[in-house]
Design a protein around this nucleic acid. Sequence first.
DNA 1: GATTAGGATTGG
Length: 498
Amino acid sequence: MSSVAYSLSHSEEEVTETLTDENNVSSTLERSSVKSFISLQKARKSGALVNVIGVVVACTPKRKSNGTDYTCSLVIIDPSIPINAKGITVNVFRSLIDQLPDLSVGNIFIGKHLRIQTFYETTQLVATKEGSTFKVIDDITERNHQFPFSMQPHAKEIMEYCSYLRRWCTSSSNSRHGNYTSITSSRKRIKIQELLPGIFFDLIAEIVMVCSAEFKVDLYVSDFTENKLLGNREYRPNTPYGLYSRNILQITLWDEHVEDGEKLQIGTFVHLRNLHSKRNTNDDLVAFLHGDREFKNKKIIVLDEQDADTRNVLEQNERSSCPELEHDYTEQSITRIICDKEIEITDIDDIKGYSEPANLFRARGRVISVIPSNFEDFSQPYCHRCNKIMHFIGCENCTKCSRELTRFKYKFGLLFEDEHGVETIPVLITKEDANTFLEGLPPVNLYKNQTVLQKLKRRMQNLLGNVLESQAGCGPLIDFCVRSYEIEDGNAKESFYL
DNA sequence: GATTAGGATTGG
């Protein structure tokens, strides 16, 4: 049986007190100055319930846990914790977010009936909703603190000890305050623009593209910030997988993350944990999500549109986009290009070698030209009876049957170039294919409907890059599937497989 | 009715 010696009285002189056991708490645990409370250093016996008081040196925001409850974590210290040692983490769980404590660094946390746990050789305390109570002291000078019922018999003692802790904490001899910037990990959440090679980091981003292979998945994500170390065709042409945009980060998922990754939909927002950045053989900055040997926590967390982190990224998107574009938060998704990875890649040249209408090729390339050259003309008047799309936006009557035209249809062409910049293949997107490709965007007169026009521009932006703005412009390198290739009136016709 | 949180850094 050892004794505990630390400053207890509210005078500055140190008092040594030998505590005797009481049967209400584990007999090997020692108490702090307050009856039935123990010092943090003694709170080590896994499974025991303890009452503790400590100064908050770190805390997380309140958040929804992956279980049923809301949670927040804090780290507390008291004079029994050795200098240079970490404090004790307390994880608090409550069914309602408002039942969690309002915390900031420097507060004093008083917890009753906290469960001691050992997690990977670290001691932590858990305040479950079954039986634990807590009180946070923000202002020590405040007279009328309302204590939970379970603490009321000790309220006076507790406040005296709190005053002592407060002085201990602010005294010049104690410089531990503020050393705990992160609650448990040194890993940081960063923006793509801050990314450097060789670091572990967390990222909030939108899925731009998903490419599955046998043992891995390549995710292409963006948080709409820009990083010059990311692949850019302008200075490094024909990089395999290197995307044009400096906004897009390639992340390779391994092992158990493959299963989570291949389910991800384009346009969803994710919180990615423990990414590792690196330069690939082309010197592009990329990231990896390695498998976990034993710690089987999810590293890919899907966020919903209302999530605060998601909204933050969307705000960034707004700042980085053209100011004249109007923004509609319900229309953030990127036009879907779904690629069946089971299909072998075929050279564009070989696709064109098929004389008969053929099906299902996968090719790799980028858009280098678009017809028409402005988005307003992507949709033209259409005669339902003749199934004919007119050539002029001003057409009021069908050129064949003279009926009055009320409908519109999309009709536009993209010229793809292979990754080596050698072969090209034209792609015509119209009628039903266009409805699928531009799902949710009705074919309307784009000169008259600004909302649909802006949505169309937004959708196409990630596919087209700066093709329409610049003669030398091009879209990002992508894999796409060709549904059919045929010669029609001497013109090549082809569709996306969707 | 139990669970939730929880770190460090090998490797394709």
